[in-house]
Design a protein around this nucleic acid. Structure first.
Lengths: 240, 240
DNA sequence: GTCTATAGTCGGATAGAC
DNA sequence: GTCTATCCGACTATAGAC
């Protein structure tokens, strides 16, 4: 049986050099640790790939190729496929935290003081504007959303991280503000339920964006989208 | 190199006989076509497996094993993995159609006639009760939802089928009724937007069920869930 | 720290007996 | 129609050179 002497290696060698980034020369980044920069590049690519393909769908080969590194680098920096996946989740949580920090701080300060319903409503709108930026913005957050979406719809190893650092803080903050509008001093179940419904209205254009775009006949016009959706959300906030 | 004489076959043989259904004797179903029954059983298992694992995550071996058939049976009946996946989508669309048919017929008849806002509201509530049954019910629809959810969040080969046979009819019907409540004779974009927001409120407890359950501290009590959500939806319908 | 080469595993598909 | 046996490609992980 002479089958399979070494077909893989031979074949792979043919296509292995169709790289993208021309591999920045080692000397060019002198003074920095090269390692950190490589790690970041891998993480960036992994974020996008896991988001687009899911955990099982993504392959470490693809990620390594797109990041312009070799396969063992993934193990070196992240321990393996799952480690890389978890690192992505932590990265998303950190960036989300940075994005929401100012608004969240202001809102929490307001909650600590006395506040009338009108003021609470104003804070809700600020919080939801920030959430909308995260969920519907055209910026880099677009890359993270698919990742989060997948993990929430189908909890995997990163669910706990994303739930406790993204969803829970976001919903609790909204729920606290909504409860205040309802005239309740502490956060109530009703407040949480309403917060969920409100956030899900936003999510309709994230999770269900393909359906929404088709139904409304939009060619995916981001600006128009955002404005109409924001208006609809504001209407709902005013109706609380 | 004596490596790998035949490790797979040997290993697989060890666990291959951990079946479930004891393979109904061939004579027992005499008179029926055996084939149809086998096909149905495969489809049922595939529905569940694709829903739980996704297209890439699911393996044909697993499906074949769980259905109590051999691997080539999948090719025989469905042409391959993708054919099986598409067959699942068609099956879901057919069952959904059967489920919604009575309500949809009634609503369309009402739309064809003159109808005041109050009457339209009543029909919306009927339509959403049926949708809630599909999206939140404890019955067999539970199996289909994950499948649909995945395909909508991340369009694949079955998106067109599910969009045109599930989402589009559902949203258009709701939008037509909502437009009527708004005093518009024909369906408007505003009606479609509101229909989407309303349906997404429902979907929050489907797509985002894991988050919802955690946030609200529910131990996944179906009955309690359905009632509260239905009430919230009714409130929103009344606010149109 | 970064690479090449390869081991070990698994998945989808199919030929051909019955 | 249903089965067994097997092919072949693709994946993750790792050993070990540099």
């Amino acid at each position: 049986m002479p089958q399979r002497t070494r077909p893989r290696s031979a074949k792979r060698a043919l296509k292995v050099r169709s790289k993208k980034l021309p591999r920045v020369p080692k000397a060019a980044v002198d003074g920095y640790q090269k390692g950190k920069e490589t790690r970041t590049r891998i993480l960036e690519v992994a974020l996008k790939t896991f988001g687009n393909e899911g955990f099982k769908g993504a392959t470490t080969r693809q990620i390594a190729d797109d990041a312009g590194v070799n396969l063992p680098a993934l193990k070196y920096y992240f321990g393996g496929k799952e480690g890389l996946y978890l690192a992505c989740a932590h990265e998303i949580a950190a960036r989300y935290g940075r994005l929401m920090l100012p608004v969240a701080n202001t809102a929490h300060a307001a909650l600590a003081s006395q506040m009338d319903a009108a003021s609470a409503r104003k804070h809700i709108k600020l919080v939801f504007a920030a959430l909308a930026e995260f969920l519907l913005g055209t910026s880099e957050t677009r890359l993270w959303r698919l990742f989060v979406q997948r993990e929430m719809a189908n909890p995997g190893p990163a669910f706990e991280i994303l739930y406790s650092q993204l969803w829970k803080p976001g919903v609790e903050l909204s729920a606290a503000l909504i409860s205040r509008v309802l005239g309740q001093q502490a956060t109530t179940q009703e407040g949480r339920l309403r917060a969920l419904l409100l956030i899900s209205s936003l999510a309709a254009f994230d999770t269900g964006s393909h359906v929404a775009v088709r139904v409304l006949g939009w060619p995916d016009l981001r600006a128009e989208r955002l404005e109409l959706v924001k208006k609809a959300i504001h209407d709902q906030i005013d109706l609380i």
